[in-house]
Design a binder for these strands. Structure first.
Lengths: 226, 226
DNA sequence: CTAAATTTGTCCGTATGTATT
DNA sequence: AAATACATACGGACAAATTTA
């Protein structure tokens, strides 16, 4: 049913993107250094140039690489949070907003969750567990938080939560997300995800709120601080 | 400098998307109606199927069309922008949502409030004090809560708070508000408003949160109960 | 300064997979 | 069971920008 290694059903481009993500984050090329040409990479990984380019498109959106016509493709220089104080939908503002909303949101969800809600959460947990690339992980991560909002069975809360989700999509995360995407960090995130769902399942309101708060603080810390 | 009308430097896909947008919006195909197949369209517009598909990708993201494997491509049923479910929200849901958001919001505002923010709050207090009718009172009441959101100096929080304010506007309150508009009730509300601003002024985080919570619970109680 | 080589950007035509009718 | 139609991938060609000779 569910293959834990699951790289089968993803598209070739998505799978290749996950591979390249790992290569970039593990220092395969140095910061600011030039990657091989598209033709060389497509040959090396055994895919068509079109397919490779879709993978690069994803990496570019994550801010992991930069591409220049006539020059080549380069690994982005790791720039720290940079210019954070001035907010116009800064990552810091979004995280702060999540911190004041989501712990209370999940606390409300605890008192309302139905078996169907729990099933939806479990599905999201499987998604985050099996995710290969950062893109896929984030998809299921967002779905899980939406599942918590759904479990409040409150249309106003859901509307507000989704409004925040849309704001998140318009935020310039730069490399902040990718920087934290190490096996160790992702392991911690998954533990927290499981702990939150477990707290909801056991109707432990305080634990759910506490775990959510710790979860968001953890993300904050490795994004901003290091 | 980007000229939005300029179809010269745009890619073939982007130009075609603009043409198809016009065709869709001008009623070239009926709502829910089926468009020609991708092969037929690419032939008609003289582009490769790949190119046509990129144009359709854009239209799909805009919600103008829906695509189904094996069935075809269809013009979406008329829903101008970003079809959100505008169900009539229950007053109970809105109050519950305010209860989980606003106490944390004002707690954050306490740590950020500037003299200008306080001046704005004082102006709103005068408004509620002097208000004659219910309409005027509600205007300044909403303005005060918006002032708290502004005082967080967090764009994401402000955006979310205003999203909730818009939800409140399309809520069917029936006579719930009018029922509670007695001199006695309004006196209590004003006391609470003053207490909240005072707590913010004195940077008393816990008291601000507590007062806000009591404020919302009070409104809930006389709307729902009694 | 010019011309050629390199590299990414865009588009095309075709083949195969998968879901629906 | 077969035809239809979208989804994905491949390889090739040319254009545009940059670097190099």
């Amino acid at each position: 049913m569910v293959d834990p290694v699951k790289t089968e059903d993803a598209t070739a481009a998505a799978r290749l993107q996950a591979v390249l993500e790992q290569a970039l984050l593990s220092g395969q090329w140095e910061e600011g250094g030039k990657l091989p040409t598209e033709r060389a990479l497509s040959l090396e990984y055994g895919v068509a140039r079109n397919t490779l380019r879709r993978a690069l498109d994803g990496l570019e959106r994550l801010g992991l690489i930069e591409r220049h016509v006539g020059r080549g493709t380069f690994r982005s220089a790791a720039r720290p949070p940079a210019a954070m104080e001035e907010e116009a939908l800064s990552p810091a503002a979004v995280m702060e907003c999540r911190l004041i909303l989501e712990p209370e949101l999940i606390a409300l969800a605890v008192t309302r969750t139905t078996p169907a809600d729990l099933a939806r959460m479990d599905e999201c947990l499987r998604g985050t567990d099996d995710a290969s690339g950062l893109l896929e992980f984030e998809h299921w991560d967002a779905a899980l938080h939406d599942a918590f909002a759904l479990a409040t069975h409150n249309a106003a809360v859901l509307s507000m939560s989704r409004s925040l989700a849309r704001v998140r999509e318009r935020t310039d995360w730069g490399q902040l997300k990718a920087r934290g995407d190490t096996p160790r960090h992702r392991g911690t995130l998954q533990e927290q995800h499981h702990a939150m769902v477990e707290a909801v399942r056991r109707r432990d309101r305080d634990r759910a709120r506490q775990t959510m708060r710790a979860h968001i603080l953890f993300i904050q810390s490795y994004m901003m601080g290091e």
